[in-house]
Amino acid sequence: MIIPHPLLGPRDAQEFVYLGDASLMNRPDGMTAGIEAFHDWLYQRDNPAGIHRELWYHEQGDRSWLVVTRNTLTHEILGAELARDVARAMGRTK
């Protein structure tokens, strides 16, 4: 699989480490969220057959985190964004 890195262009997926569903970026607030919310965030997955937004870390590259959109039925990669940009678009500072 070739991941279209927004800064570096097409890169082999072997340069990356896979973490999982991009919803892992949305960690609940530890001071206010209950244990059930933390459980759901850490352990439960949608695990869709089809379009999946997921976190890849460019460990053997520029060490940026990407949100890659990929089809889990075909392995086709539909796009990649910097996770930083995705987080900022959600209103976070970093």
Binding site: G20, D21, D40, Y43, Q44, R45, D46, N47, P48, A49, T72
Partner: peptide, 18 residues
């Protein structure tokens, strides 16, 4: 292998990735 897809019919999310 297909657990998440079938259990989604019951509205359940699972601690599983395929």
């Amino acid at each position: 292998g297909s657990s998440s897809r079938v259990m989604a019919h019951a509205g359940l999310r699972l601690p599983i990735e395929s």
